[in-house]
Simulated assay, not measured.
Amino acid sequence: MSDAMKSSPLRVLFVNRMACLERGGGETFDLEISRHLATAGAQVLFLSGAPLFGPPPMPMAGARVLHTPWLRWFPWDKVKGGWRVRKLEFDWFEWRAARWVAKHAAEFDVIQVCELPNLVYWLKKRGVKTPVVMRLTAPNYYDPRGGVPLADALIASGTSIQKLRDLGLEVADIPNAVDADLFRPQPSDFRKKHGIGAGEFVALYVARFQAFKNHQMLLEAFARFAKDRPASRLVLAGSGPLRERTEQQARELGIADKVLFLGEVPFQELPGVYAATDVKVISSDYESFCFAAIEAMSTALPVLTTDCAWVPRLVAEDAGIVVPVGDAEAFAAGLKKLADNPALRQRMGAAGRQQVLERHTWPTSAEKLMALYGRLVEKRLMPVATPQGNAHA
């Protein structure tokens, strides 16, 4: 890194439409790694979305917000053609964000974008010179204008890396991580607060209510398991368009009194929720990574997961149990095995936490990202070589 860069803080703009609206893996990554970048001396600003009318539901101190349409209630992943509505929402935000960023680009050394390929396209079309880093959270991105290849650098983690490289894209591996000091075994009043007995077996699922998270299969599996294990609870944390449908399913299965819907849980309260439960469950059809898995492992919880791409790799080393995708019977059997074996749960939990401490910490990921930023900024500052003409006497 050049002396000029060392003498002044790196100025980074994070553009993440959902950061002030709702939290998922992409938002968790940006929020956590930006915090560690700031600890390393960088100056960080967020540009996020907000509802067309009213304040953002998850405000961030100092963040700039752009008010655009947000149909939170619309089940876009269940309705035929619903993705078009989702696309229009993002298009509107990206268009407004491109205007704002182009106006303020000179105030930053690096612009980091969470997906949003249209934004990258429009920034480059407007001639923005500030390096743009795009993080891709999944390989099946939608990029009709060809913005992804225009980014100055691409970053990803999990299964997305190889799939993106198979498409001919150069991608830097910046691993997802977890704050192991925050997510750790610790005392918790969660059970007392929600009337859950000390002897009850509690399974936790932290996920948005979207189709690919497959809450439907999870409830079917839990209903089978609970028939023989009445002293058990299923805790669901998160929001999304399919929550009401999931609540209705719990009533139809006769387990509504055993399923606790928490809604969105503030990030700082999540460690206490994990610490009060016995197993982390993941019923997804697909996951490119899964922050909730490493949060649970860091808290020394065993993980019961479907064979959903990347997560089985995380738990493969004795940190959990893997069952086929969509198999409610196998999932119920996994719950029973863990409920009947406290020693197995303890052994798997210890193995998971050790794996997190060795491979998935934020300071390491932030250091890699800062090094990437440094290379991009230095490349931009390098003088452009000009051809020398022949001298004539």
Rank of each mutant, 00 (worst) to 15 (best):
R35M: 03
R35W: 05
H36K: 15
H36F: 10
L37R: 13
A38V: 13
A38K: 14
T39N: 09
A40K: 12
G41H: 12
A42P: 12
A42F: 12
Q43T: 10
Q43D: 13
V44I: 13
L45Q: 15
L45M: 15
L45V: 10
F46V: 05
F46Q: 12
L47K: 11
S48N: 05
S48L: 01
P51V: 10
L52H: 14
L52V: 13
F53V: 10
G54Y: 11
G54E: 15
P56N: 08
P56D: 10
P56H: 08
P57S: 13
P57L: 07
M58S: 15
M58T: 15
M58V: 14
M58K: 15
P59K: 01
P59L: 03
M60H: 05
M60E: 09
G62F: 01
G62A: 00
G62Q: 00
R64C: 10
R64F: 02
R64D: 12
R64G: 02
R64K: 07
V65G: 05
V65Y: 08
L66S: 05
H67S: 15
T68W: 10
T68S: 13
T68N: 11
P69W: 02
P69I: 00
P69E: 12
W70I: 00
W70F: 08
L71M: 11
L71F: 13
P75G: 08
D77F: 07
D77C: 04
K78E: 00
V79A: 12
V79I: 14
K80W: 00
K80T: 15
K80S: 15
G81S: 14
G81N: 14
G81F: 05
W83T: 14
R84H: 15
R84W: 12
V85L: 14
V85I: 10
V85P: 12
R86G: 12
R86L: 12
L88M: 14
E89N: 08
D91Y: 04
W92C: 13
F93R: 11
W95E: 12
R96N: 14
A97Y: 05
A98R: 06
A98K: 06
R99E: 07
V101K: 06
K103V: 03
K103F: 02
H104E: 13
A106N: 03
A106P: 03
E107H: 11
E107P: 01
F108W: 02
F108T: 10
D109A: 04
D109K: 07
V110F: 03
V110P: 04
V110Q: 00
V113N: 02
V113Q: 03
C114E: 09
E115G: 05
E115L: 03
E115F: 03
E115V: 02
P117Q: 01
P117Y: 04
P117T: 02
N118D: 03
N118G: 01
N118E: 02
L119V: 07
L119H: 08
L119E: 00
V120Q: 04
W122I: 01
W122T: 09
W122D: 08
K124F: 01
K125F: 00
K125N: 03
R126I: 01
R126V: 00
R126A: 07
G127A: 02
G127I: 04
V128R: 04
V128L: 15
V128G: 11
K129M: 07
T130I: 05
